[in-house]
Deep mutational scan, measured.
Amino acid sequence: MQIFVKTLTGKTITLEVEPSDTIENVKAKIQDKEGIPPDQQRLIFAGKQLEDGRTLSDYNIQKDSTLHLVLR
């Protein structure tokens, strides 16, 4: 499925993911596309910070959802 990741600069990254993918996995995909190390990434969805060990389906993230990427 496709999800979107919006950065603070207003750029939107499109990712191909599975509901069973972990947040860690998603961060690795963002690193592949953007070169941002996962340890600098914070992903936010519906006002919640997403934890590495959980999956997209744990957070009820569905296709065409938009996550927000904050760098630390």
Rank of each mutant, 00 (worst) to 15 (best):
D39A: 04
E24F: 14
K33R: 07
K27A: 02
S57M: 14
G53P: 10
E16S: 09
E34F: 08
P37T: 14
I36E: 02
Y59W: 02
R54W: 02
L69I: 04
D39N: 12
I61K: 00
R72F: 09
Q49L: 15
T7W: 15
D58N: 05
Q2D: 13
K48N: 12
D64G: 04
L71V: 06
I13M: 06
A28N: 10
I36S: 04
P38R: 04
L43K: 00
E24G: 14
P19Q: 14
Q40T: 08
D64T: 15
S20W: 15
L67F: 04
T55D: 09
P37D: 15
E34R: 06
T7F: 08
D32M: 08
T55F: 10
Q2A: 09
V17F: 10
T9D: 11
Q41G: 06
R42N: 12
A28K: 05
G10A: 15
Q40P: 02
Q41T: 04
I23E: 01
E18Q: 10
T22A: 12
A28P: 02
L67P: 01
I3T: 01
K27P: 00
F4K: 06
T22M: 03
R54A: 10
V17I: 06
L69P: 00
L71D: 14
T9N: 14
A28D: 06
P37L: 15
N25M: 12
Q2P: 04
V70E: 06
G53Y: 07
K63S: 15
L71W: 08
E24H: 08
I30Q: 00
I30S: 01
I61F: 03
Q2F: 13
K63Y: 06
K33Y: 09
R42A: 06
L50M: 09
I61A: 02
A28T: 06
R54S: 11
L50N: 00
K11G: 05
L71P: 09
K11S: 05
Q41P: 01
E34L: 12
I3P: 00
I13L: 03
Q49E: 05
R54Q: 03
I30Y: 05
T14M: 10
T9I: 13
H68Y: 02
G53D: 05
D21W: 04
V17Y: 08
A28E: 08
V5M: 03
L56W: 01
I61Q: 00
D21T: 11
K6A: 12
S65N: 05
F45N: 08
D64V: 02
R54F: 14
F45S: 05
P37V: 12
K63E: 10
L43T: 01
I30A: 02
T22F: 07
D39T: 14
K48G: 11
L43F: 09
R54N: 12
R42E: 09
V26P: 00
P19S: 12
F45V: 09
Q2S: 15
V70F: 05
Q62F: 15
A46W: 11
K11A: 14
Q62V: 12
L15V: 04
D52V: 06
S65L: 03
I3E: 00
D52W: 03
T7G: 10
L69H: 01
D21I: 10
L67G: 01
L15I: 07
F45L: 07
P19G: 04
D52N: 14
K33G: 11
N25F: 09
L8E: 14
F4R: 10
E24R: 15
N25L: 14
K11F: 14
S20Y: 12
L67I: 06
Q2N: 04
G10Q: 08
T7S: 12
L15D: 00
T14F: 13
Q62I: 14
E18I: 12
I13Q: 04
Q62H: 15
D32K: 11
T22G: 06
D32L: 05
K63N: 11
N25H: 09
D52L: 08
T55W: 05
A28I: 15
L15M: 15
M1S: 10
E16H: 12
Q40N: 08
S57I: 15
Q2I: 12
K29N: 14
I36D: 03
E18A: 15
K6M: 15
E51Q: 05
N60A: 11
E51K: 05
V17T: 12
Q40Y: 09
G10P: 07
P37Q: 15
L8N: 11
T22N: 09
E24A: 03
F4P: 02
T14E: 11
S57T: 10
Y59S: 06
V70Y: 05
Q41N: 06
D32W: 12
E34S: 08
L50A: 02
V5G: 01
L69G: 01
P37F: 14
I13R: 02
R42M: 15
Q2W: 06
E16P: 08
R42F: 13
L15T: 02
N60R: 05
N60E: 06
D21N: 13
E24L: 05
E16W: 11
G47I: 02
R72S: 12
Q62Y: 13
